[in-house]
Design a protein around this nucleic acid. Structure first.
Lengths: 360, 360
DNA sequence: TTCGCGAATGTAAACGTTTCCATCACCGGA
DNA sequence: TCCGGTGATGGAAACGTTTACATTCGCGAA
């Protein structure tokens, strides 16, 4: 309290020097206390802590990372995601980042490769690692990434050079098609996502392969969509109006499946009795449309969290050789696929009734 | 190419000194070029730029912000948001941040006040400003914020001490209730959001006030929800089973409205003929449920973007006095409110038909 | 020719840490 | 009594920038 400075306009932030002077120790000791090193007398530590508290000292991040060469930040590059996907992914990322004491620098991209390059350049040097969700099939833009900084890709088509974590869209699609076939549907159409999207591509591939494997006679029936409800609506209209209406429609995601449901309803086509519908993603709303939507639930939180864990490992051990992990989606059977309707006497399987209470 | 260093293990990142040496100028000139200052000979500038390019020099962010005292980062504190809200908000924030050359440090909170304090502490010193979405009514946690760093609050109940930007939930709710009354509905129930949520509170208040103003005879009818589809479902069940079924249900958000629709459908109550339903938020899926959902569309992107603009202004001019801006939601009339059904011959207004094509 | 001036460039201090190394005090054993 | 060792503390260099100030140079005017 002796050395009262004149009140400078900006109340100059207190530095480690202020603390050291006030506690009558050297900056080295203060630094040791702040960083929790052992070799400092309990009594000295106490005195320093008290001054830190009184002066509200907060270490200057930039100065610290200038010398330690660590920023405790990871960069997250995401495309323009809609709906539940974004929030769930961030939830997973943020939670895991917190566990590792990392901060998340977020940049959302609007598709352009040049923009991605710019974002990467801006983050370069600012972050210790990069988390990238690059769903476009064309991955040449990814070459832009500085090879020095560790990176983990999510749901991307990457060579084996870098670590990656992905949803098994291919396997999920096969599971769903297998399920639809097991429900008794013979002709199954597929509404795809955007043509350049990796997941859309994988789901379509799964659809084709499973169809060819389980139902060699059937010809694939593809309608192009773009993952939006509106495109699902249009696809539904087209399918319902077609000469040969399919038994079932497997949409590339839930949003399109719900759009499709709306179109079928508008055209007076009953679901699942006339046409069955299934989606992919497992958004919560799928349980509340009529009929409730059968879908593959995708573990988005785990995708984000797992990617962060991988990245943290990579940052700690940069020479770890890249791993490619895949996460399995889970089949969620609801009403829209027809599995829950009063069984036509085909196979007297365990007729499990819908869990949802219905009164009519 | 003369001075080829032995291949050190980590290929030491090139610094401004390397560039200066290679270009045979002083670091000052390099710095001037990098920062786009004017006083440097075009020929010199050219030579420096070329070296920068060849050596892939990227200025060290920490060193730079150590001396400039600017980090070009803003912190964004969000609660555990679900669905469309999160992605839209981030889209708005990210876009505006990019315009201002700011980076976004994201932290999502799970409700706990202590956690918020921790997040703020972690960001303190790292960011130039804070963007906070603190929907809980109890704002004592906000006192934790260091008063030195500029902050803008979104949809929060804050005193006039800080800048804020909010959706006019109160006015929106009044608009919706007025609309429902104009549709001929007399008894209108309201499903609220979480009891401690600011928006939920404002919407309920708007509901009560408009009801009292336009329909003095009617008693408010409140069912508690929590913004989830499930709570809307439960509320819908309760309302449908009640002795006196209301004419209309105004849900505090779209998710609950959709849950409510599902419940009414399950109980065989026709919407909008038996009961009208309306939501709030304007999520895309609302246009694809059956019947399509009447709602108040909330300009979420503008909320995020506007908040960033405010914050950027505050960072540039810290002494600007705080402003409190509100954004108006917009009434979206679809089928669930009954406005589009074949008019009972009550008022021969301009009977505008549904835009959506229907065939039955 | 000299002087002064402005533009281009260089020098070096400062930013706030961390950490290597030196110093110092103390203590137990020879 | 002296010596080596140990553990707490301090001094100072280093991190990579920006920028105030000094220096140099060329050129036009006096």
């Amino acid at each position: 309290m002796t050395n009262r400075r004149p009140p400078a306009r900006p109340p100059a932030p207190t530095t480690i020097n202020d603390v050291a002077r006030e506690a009558r120790v050297s900056v080295a000791s203060v630094s040791r206390v702040v960083n929790g090193h052992a070799n400092v007398l309990p009594e000295t530590r106490q005195r320093i802590l008290e001054v830190i508290d009184r002066l509200r000292y907060v270490p200057h991040t930039a100065a610290r990372s200038l010398i330690t060469r660590r920023s405790q930040m990871i960069g997250v590059l995401l495309p323009d995601l809609h709906g539940e996907f974004f929030s769930e992914l961030i939830r997973g990322i943020d939670g895991a980042a917190r566990e590792h004491g990392l901060h998340v620098l977020l940049s959302s991209l609007h598709g352009d490769a040049a923009e991605m390059a710019a974002a990467v350049r801006a983050m370069h040097g600012r972050v210790e690692g990069l988390l990238v969700l690059a769903p476009q099939l064309d991955t040449t833009a990814l070459r832009e990434l500085p090879p020095a900084v560790p990176a983990v890709f999510m749901n991307s088509r990457v060579a084996g050079r870098t670590s990656s974590l992905a949803i098994d869209s291919y396997g999920g699609a096969r599971t769903m098609v297998r399920h639809l076939i097991a429900c008794g549907h013979r002709t199954i159409a597929h509404i795809t996502g955007p043509i350049s999207n990796f997941d859309a591509h994988e789901r379509e591939r799964g659809y084709r392969d499973e169809l060819a494997a389980s139902q060699p006679a059937a010809r694939p029936r593809i309608v192009r969509g773009d993952f939006t409800e509106t495109s699902g609506y249009e696809a539904g209209r087209a399918l319902a109006a077609a000469a040969a209406r399919p038994d079932a429609v497997f949409a590339g995601n839930d949003a399109m499946a719900i759009g499709c449901l709306a179109a079928l309803d508008a055209l007076g086509v009953a679901v699942p009795d006339d046409v069955a519908v299934a989606g992919f993603d497992g958004i919560p709303l799928g349980g509340f449309v009529r009929p409730t939507l059968t879908t593959m639930r995708v573990p988005i939180v785990e995708l984000g969290g797992g990617a962060v864990h991988q990245l943290a490992g990579l940052i700690a051990q940069p020479d770890t050789k890249p791993a490619a992990v895949t996460l399995q989606p889970e089949l969620v059977v609801r009403d829209s696929c027809g599995a829950n309707r009063p069984q036509r006497p085909r196979a007297p399987s365990s007729s499990r009734p819908s869990r949802r209470q219905r009164s009519r």
